[in-house]
């Protein structure tokens, strides 16, 4: 787990810097990104903060102090992230519910161990809700990112093959797409998770398998348009092979589409996991799970509102930022504006 988590951090950072260099080298993309920064500075800042939280929760190692009073021997052998080490969740907890900033327990008025320090209260097990909410960022980004990573190659492969070669290939791909599209996706999702088993990876794979269709359709239609364009024809007249044409002329002209869809997919994946969590097959530690657990608290008297509110607010903040980003990306990456600049 340590290696996987830290390795993922390295890979993500490496990819991000590579993308940064590539964008810097290409005037068209560089300019688009500059306009994006000018248009959505706050969104970008918010997303950076979210990303940073996820990173802090991903860099982890085993050992070190587990904090006084935990008395948990197992914890000493578990990988704990920077965020964990910051909050010391083993000791920074209560025996039961605490309201935000409360000095005593919500039910029973027993004095708290950390009075006034739980900004968003604690849950039924006495865990700090602010901490749990922050941990949800990593889970959400993981779901969105990993699923998109599965979706994009599948969608590109099928979409380009169908759009570029047409004929039989197109028929076959379209049959597959229509079949998938006609199965209620929630049913298919749950069935897949039943087969694959529960767990973050499995849920992401299941989400990926059920959601590549829309991007593939888009890519197919766009490829269909691109392959008729004069510069593809001109490339053929110069003796460029089909494979090279796809690589040099089709793919780069699909890039904007992929970036925009990636962002939109991202938010719909995070949302889909929430629904899965509600059905009891979500990813551990997600906001969906928090919301699912909080649904009973809502009928208590007096109401325990902070769990649900915290998870929903975080979910809302992330999705709003991502959707605002997607919207702005659509504007700055529109090929027509790209061309005219």
């Amino acid at each position: 787990m340590v290696w996987l988590s830290n390795g993922a951090v390295v890979v993500v950072l490496a990819l991000a810097s590579l993308a940064g260099i590539a964008v810097r080298r290409n005037p068209l993309w560089h300019d688009a990104m500059r306009r994006l920064a000018r248009r959505r500075p706050i969104t970008l800042m918010a997303l950076s903060v979210f990303g940073l939280i996820a990173l802090l929760d991903s860099v982890c190692w085993v050992g070190g102090e587990t904090g006084p009073g935990s008395g948990d021997a197992v914890a000493a052998y578990e990988a704990r992230s920077l965020l964990d080490r910051w909050f010391e969740p083993e000791s920074f907890r209560e025996r039961s519910y605490s309201a935000p900033f409360a000095a005593e327990e919500f039910y029973g008025a027993a004095p708290l161990e950390h009075p006034g320090e739980h900004w968003l209260g604690t849950d039924v097990l006495g865990r700090d809700v602010f901490f749990l909410t922050l941990k949800g960022f990593r889970v959400a980004l993981l779901i969105g990112g990993f699923t998109s990573l599965i979706v994009i190659p599948i969608a590109l492969a099928f979409g380009i093959a169908a759009g570029y070669f047409g004929g039989r290939v197109d028929d076959a791909v379209f049959f597959l797409i229509s079949t998938l599209a006609s199965i209620p996706s929630l049913l298919l999702l749950i069935a897949l998770i039943m087969v694959l088993g529960r767990g973050t990876t499995q849920v992401c794979i299941a989400l990926g398998i059920t959601s590549w269709v829309s991007l593939a359709r888009l890519v197919r239609a766009e490829t269909f348009r691109l392959r008729e364009l004069d510069y593809v024809e001109a490339a053929r007249a110069l003796g460029v092979s089909e494979f090279q044409i796809i690589l040099r002329h089709i793919l780069p002209n699909l890039a904007h589409l992929v970036v925009i869809t990636f962002v939109l997919l991202f938010s719909s994946m995070v949302l889909a996991e929430t629904i899965l969590a509600y059905l009891g097959v979500g990813v551990d530690g997600s906001w969906g799970q928090m919301i699912d657990r909080a649904k009973d608290e809502f009928s208590r008297d007096p109401v325990v509102w902070w769990n649900l509110s915290a998870a929903s607010a975080a979910l809302f903040a992330l999705l709003l930022s991502v959707n605002l980003l997607g919207d702005a990306l659509r504007d700055v990456l529109d090929p027509r504006t790209l061309r005219e600049l």
Partner: peptide
């Protein structure tokens, strides 16, 4: 193609790849 026969097209506007 390209080596022995080459072609110039009617529409210079669209005969070049816009993203390169």
């Amino acid at each position: 193609r390209g080596e022995q026969i080459a072609m110039i097209f009617q529409e210079p506007m669209s005969a070049l790849n816009p993203v390169q």
